[in-house]
Amino acid sequence: MTDNKDTLGQTADAVAPPPPRKRRLSDTLKALRKAPLSAKFGLVVIVFYVVMAIFAPVLTPFGESEIVSNEYEPWGVEVAHETAGGGSETVTLMLGTDNLGRDMLTRLLYGARNTIGIALLTTCLAFLLGGVGGILAATLGGWPDQILSRIIDVLMAIPALIFALLLLTIFGTSVTTLVLVIAVLDSTRVFRLARAVSLNVVVMDFIEAARLRGEGLGWITLREILPNIMPPLVAEFGLRFCFVFLTIASLSFLGLGLQPPTADWGSMVRDNATLITYGDITPLLPAAAIALLTVGVNFVVDWFLHKTSGLRDDQ
């Protein structure tokens, strides 16, 4: 920095350099402190889930689908468990066991891994497809735009869940099919948004300048348009993630998503649903876990939208 000032002198003042990394970090921290309570709550929830998902194997002594006791044991039952060294220890099953006698808490932790992981993968794929398509359609205009937009119109006219059910029947239920089907169906919304916001940017002078400079399509889309449409896309990413997450959970709940013995929150609700008729809330825990995460993400997205778009408070 000091070098810069000596040689360039006033120019450095006139053209403000991008804030150094350190300041950007402190800016972020300051914004975080000022965030409303709901957004802070959302952030805490998200961090908590991510930690749980990453450290699932460390946090529980059992394997993902290890049968540890009898079926439907109540909360707080103690069982003997063999440790890795060959010895034996007593473990308390805080949330009891499920319909096959597997530890509920373990399933919940691994469920976080699988459900969130797959939802995240699907959302990324949807953004890759929809985002690239949308920006390209806006940049190219003309017939590529027309064709892409009409295809998307038709795809969006079919209710997503029904379409997903149809496709899953045809291609069979596997994780790959699930991810691909939902990613393609969801990329339509991303396409619409990416196209709409890029259309506003494409007409700007600096795009014209880049074109005259002879920049290729790749440069224009990635270096000129993409940075300018990031905020709405990031907000949309949060919302899409929630939507994908809920769709996958719903499909798993219907028995058409992740297949056993993979731990997954949707199918956990379904497998243990009979307990509800006895007034036991254990089967509701995975459902509550889904709800809490989506609420958290929604709160954060809400706050982010307010910050970046200056959305009016009364809307």
């Binding site: 929630c242 809920l246 959970a249 719903s250 709940f253 949707g266 609700v269 379904r270 649903a273 509800i276 089967p283 509701l284 459902a287 509550a288 889904i290 709800a291 989506t294 609420v295 993400v297 929604n298 709160f299 809400d302």
Partner: peptide, 14 residues
């Protein structure tokens, strides 16, 4: 805002 974040089966079971 919360109710749209809930999966349908969660509301149903509650």
């Amino acid at each position: 805002l919360s109710s749209i974040s809930f999966p349908e089966f969660f509301i149903a079971y509650i």
